[in-house]
Structure formats: structure tokens, C-alpha cells
Amino acid sequence: MYDFTYSKPSSLADAVAALAGDDQAKALAGGQTFIPVLKQRLNNPSVVVDLAGLGLSFITVTGESVTIGATTTHAAVAASKDVRNAIPALAALAGGIGDNQVRNRGTIGGSLANNDPSACYPAAALALGATIKTSKREIAADDYFQGMFTTALEPDELIVSVSFPIPAKAAYVKFKNPASRYAMVGVFVAKGPKGVRVAVTGAGQGGVHRHSAAEAALAANWSADSVAGITVPADALNSDIHASAEYRAHLVQVVTKRAVIAAG
């Protein structure tokens, strides 16, 4: 790892100023992605700005939505009674990320900022129609995800919190890589205030995306049978050492059906 200056500001304004004043400065949240990246010398930051002192670890639930602060850990979301009651699928998703030790450090803000094509939270944000609040603005999930490891965030823009509208029904089913627990294919289905929405992670070359054929079928008839026969073309899907694009296409079909069954 290259050496860097570590700083831990205690206000959002100071954190943003540290990033804006130096284009080699980088934010650090749980470090479960960023520290491995630093070890591989894939990044050579001048300053590492730790977000842990910003007071952004919180969960607020109202009748309409669940809002989670950017530095809230996966473990805290998984254990939250409020999240479990309001959006059980979201608590279950957080509880299925990596392992206990990753969940004790990794954060929702880090996951959404990183937008790994196999990550879990992007599927929840897209399917539930979440709003991502940043240090500059509010961004709808539909505008936020812009392809693998790419988001609408500017270099000096930090995620502050994420608001998820509470759905009538939702479920996330992940066919996981048995070693990392990342999604080979993960599907989040939701029927809520933003309509029927289905998001697929782990499969697409462009990262998380909506599954419009499944959405149309479920809007007409919310049942496992209505999506069971929907196939997706393999051309836009990932092929890697874990699975071929054809295998992933088949998984999208099967996992979507399982997610509808799980949502009830």
C-alpha cells in the first residue's frame, strides 16, 4: 500500500472541503472495498478522508419510508427492528452481505458509491425507487446508477443518506458466489408506491438494471407463474470465471421467480 495522510473530519462540510481541495483525496467508509483496493496499489490517494466522524450512522423510519445514514453498517441495518418491520427484505439483504466481519464494518454509503456490478444494495435502491441524498442534491435511483462501478456522484460529492419508500411487498433473492457471497445473480422485486419494479444485480455488463419484461408481467398479474417463462437474452450479461452469460441468463429467470414467491 502506498502511504497517505489520514484525516477524520467531524463535519460534512469539512469532509467535502477536504475532497474538493485535492483531486487525489479519497473518502473512506467501512474500508471493506477501499482497503483491499489500496493494498493492490490500484489507487494512490494523497489524503484518505475517514467519514466515520460525521454522525451519519442512523436509521429513521416513518410511515412512508426508511432512511439510512451513509455510514450505517450492514450489521446495524440487519439487526434493526424498525427496518425488519418496515422493509423486511432490506434487513434480510443487509444480513446476507459477505460475512459477520464484513457486515460489522461495511456501510450502505460505501456499497452504493462503489456500485460493484455484483453488490446487493444497488438492487434494493433501484427496485424500491430509493432517493440518494448527497452533500449537493437528491438523486433518484433511476438516475444514480450509470453502469459498472459508475454513478452520478461527482468526485467531491458524498452520500449523506438513502431513503427507501416502504413497499407493500418486496423480496431479494441472491444466487450467491459461495466464496465471497457476492451475487452471481440477485433479483429484488417490489410492489410499492413507485409501482412494480424488478432490479437485477450480478448479471449485467452495465451493472444493476431493471427487468422491464418481468415488471410488465407482474404489474398485470403478480404471481410466480407470470414470470416463470420470461427469458432474457445472454448478450448483455457478464461472463467470468464464476459463470457464463448463458448461465446467468438462466439464473435471472429462475431467481426472479423465486423472488416473487418469497415476496408472497
Binding site: 474500508g31 482497503i35 484518505v48 475517514d50 466481519q101 464484513v102 464494518r105 466464496a179
Partner: peptide, 25 residues
Amino acid sequence: TSQCGACVVHVNGNSVKSCTMLALQ
């Protein structure tokens, strides 16, 4: 590489991989 857990310690009562946390954190 954050995979094996041989480095797990407790920090403020939570188990974490100490190879994936900065000393300054």
C-alpha cells in the same frame, strides 16, 4: 485479502478483520 478471518479481533465489541482496518481508524 479480507477472506480468511485469521486476523479477526474485537473492536468495541464487534468482530472485525484487522487486516481490513487502518490502525488510525
